[in-house]
């Protein structure tokens, strides 16, 4: 049985994430216990809301250290939405806040290039794509169709330092940004796979399979 630790720190629609993982066949452990986190086959970091608030919650419960320790094992991690953003070095949301520093890069506010039509937060189904879809093979996006719709709710986006880490991009208000990231064995989705119907569930299943090894 593949055990995935879903980090329970009081943020995010955890219920849907756990159900989606269970549906993929994973054993789900909702936890913030160091031993449980470290002994799991993979870690999922959920999260919605403000970056600084999320980091504060992680740090005050010592979860930041657990996650760094876990990442050193090389086992897979997946961050969703704010959970992904916090994996980066820092965010410019409300000043400048340090992140977990597990993926080189930063978190910035989405640029609205078409003022007349679109606004923040970006809340809707939107497409993920890549110029080189072969990059998706063997990753969490394995067998996902280019241009597939995912469900997004956010005002900030991630900018990995290395273009290599960008697995998919999405365009909102004519602005193209990174919507799926992969750095070594650490993944992140800006969208919510647990709310993105069949394609989203496939991403969860792919992650479970990567955790299974």
């Amino acid at each position: 049985m593949t055990t995935i630790a879903v980090i329970d720190y009081g943020l995010g629609n955890i219920k849907s994430i756990c159900r989606a993982l269970k549906k993929s066949g994973a054993e789900v452990c909702l936890t913030k216990d160091r031993d449980e986190v470290l002994s799991s086959d993979g870690v999922l970091l959920p999260g919605v809301g403000a970056f600084a608030h999320g980091m504060e919650k992680l740090i005050s419960q010592g979860i930041d250290e657990q996650l760094r320790e876990f990442s050193e094992t090389g086992k897979p991690m997946l961050g969703i939405c704010l959970g992904m953003q916090m994996l980066f070095d820092r965010s410019t949301e409300f000043g400048n806040t340090e992140g977990l520093g597990l993926i080189p890069g930063q978190v910035l506010k989405l640029e609205i290039l078409d003022e007349a039509h679109e606004k923040l937060p970006h809340v809707n189904w939107n497409e993920i794509k890549s110029e080189d879809p072969s990059k998706w093979d063997g990753t969490i996006l394995d067998t996902i169709k280019g241009g597939e719709d995912m469900y997004f709710v956010h005002s900030y986006y991630v900018k990995p330092s290395s273009e290599e880490d960008v697995l998919s991009t999405t365009v909102y208000s004519q602005f193209e940004y990174c919507s799926t990231v992969k750095h070594k064995n650490i993944y992140g989705c800006q969208y919510h796979p647990e709310k993105s119907a069949t394609a989203g569930l496939k991403i969860m299943k792919n992650f479970m399979e990567i955790c299974r090894g």
Partner: peptide, 11 residues
């Protein structure tokens, strides 16, 4: 709602 989360993976 809780029960719907078992089967419904959209908002």
């Amino acid at each position: 709602i809780e029960k719907a989360c078992d089967d419904v993976f959209v908002p």
